[in-house]
């Protein structure tokens, strides 16, 4: 058996100072539980979704998209203040529906950052060799993506609200609309985060993940428009209303208009039954995505 080697001395620091090797020190401070670990993973994911703590290059895309989300809101605000009027030209929920393309691009670009990266570079086994368990990992990532999307959609709404107040539109008129808008943003975020992360979790290569998410959202949205157009041509209002079930964004729009009374842009679910169907579909989609993600991560190899 060889004698223990001498500890390597670190190189001399600039300015002639010497770093003294004080040997190995044990850690006897607190070890916080899995709740803390999960929260840390959530914060890391949320920061990662906006490229914070990452290279300059990874900040460009999310911040550009955030700007793209807010720019129309700023224009609206400017127009309202200059022209004057007793209401914003575009409602909060309508605004959200009209910028769904930007939201879809953000989701496509950043969902792979949250999940594909860990899978591609095989960091996942390091997490699972720690106290954190698989469902908790999935929950943290879902929460991070949802929050990132919510921030993306809530910021322009807050800008619009501030602008409305500047244009002397009464607070009491705007506040309920803003609350509804924020609720809508949360709903969009929950539904889209699940869909985006699930697709990204099956495509470990980042470029592939981006393409897959955007392709799925575009194809579904295209299919929805096609079905709606055909139904409209045939004069079938029930089918036209139900076409909203096809695409995640119209699904949320349908729930908002039928349950919360927001003004719908595209689809009007037919009657009370339609509302029930839309809500059920939305719940099923969110729960289904979560369960599918759990199943996906049960099969992720531990090495």
């Amino acid at each position: 058996m060889s004698a223990p080697e001498q500890p390597q001395l670190p190189p001399q620091a600039a300015g002639g100072g010497v770093i003294h090797d004080i040997g190995y020190r044990h850690y006897d401070g607190p070890r916080l539980g899995t709740r803390y670990v999960q929260r840390s993973l959530f914060v890391d994911g949320l920061r990662g979704a906006y490229g914070l703590g990452r290279s300059m290059r990874s900040k460009i895309m999310p911040l550009l998209l955030l700007a793209a989300m807010c720019l129309p809101a700023i224009v609206l605000v400017v127009v309202t203040t200059v022209v004057g009027g007793d209401d914003l030209p575009l409602g909060y929920t309508e605004y959200l529906f009209n910028v769904q393309t930007v939201v879809a691009i953000f989701l496509a670009a950043q969902a792979p950052v949250l999940v594909s990266r860990d899978l591609r570079y095989r960091v996942v086994p390091l997490y699972f060799a720690r106290p954190l368990q698989r469902p908790q990992y999935v929950q943290a990532k879902l929460a991070a993506m949802t929050t990132a999307l919510f921030v993306l959609m809530a910021l322009p709404l807050v800008i619009m609200f501030a602008g409305a107040l500047l244009a002397k539109i009464p607070f009491s008129e705007q506040a309920p609309d803003l609350a509804l808008g924020l609720l809508a943003a949360l709903l969009y975020a929950v539904v889209l985060a699940g869909v985006g992360l699930l697709i990204a979790a099956f495509t470990p290569r980042r470029g592939l993940g981006v393409a897959a998410v955007i392709a799925v959202l575009l194809v579904l949205s295209g299919a929805q428009v096609a079905v709606w157009a055909i139904a409209d041509e045939l004069g079938n209002t029930t089918l036209a209303g139900l076409s909203g079930l096809i695409s995640p964004s119209t699904l949320v729009d349908g729930v908002l208009s039928s349950v919360l009374g927001a003004s719908s842009t595209v689809v009007e679910p037919p009657g009370t039954l339609g509302a029930v169907v839309f809500v059920a579909a939305a719940v099923l989609l969110v729960v289904g995505c979560y369960l599918a993600l759990l199943a996906r991560y049960r099969r992720v190899p531990t090495s």
Binding site: G29, R31, L32, Y36, V37, S40, R130, L132
Partner: peptide, 9 residues
């Protein structure tokens, strides 16, 4: 990050 993932403040 990995230290935090092990529960260290």
């Amino acid at each position: 990050h990995m230290a935090r993932m092990s529960g260290l403040p």
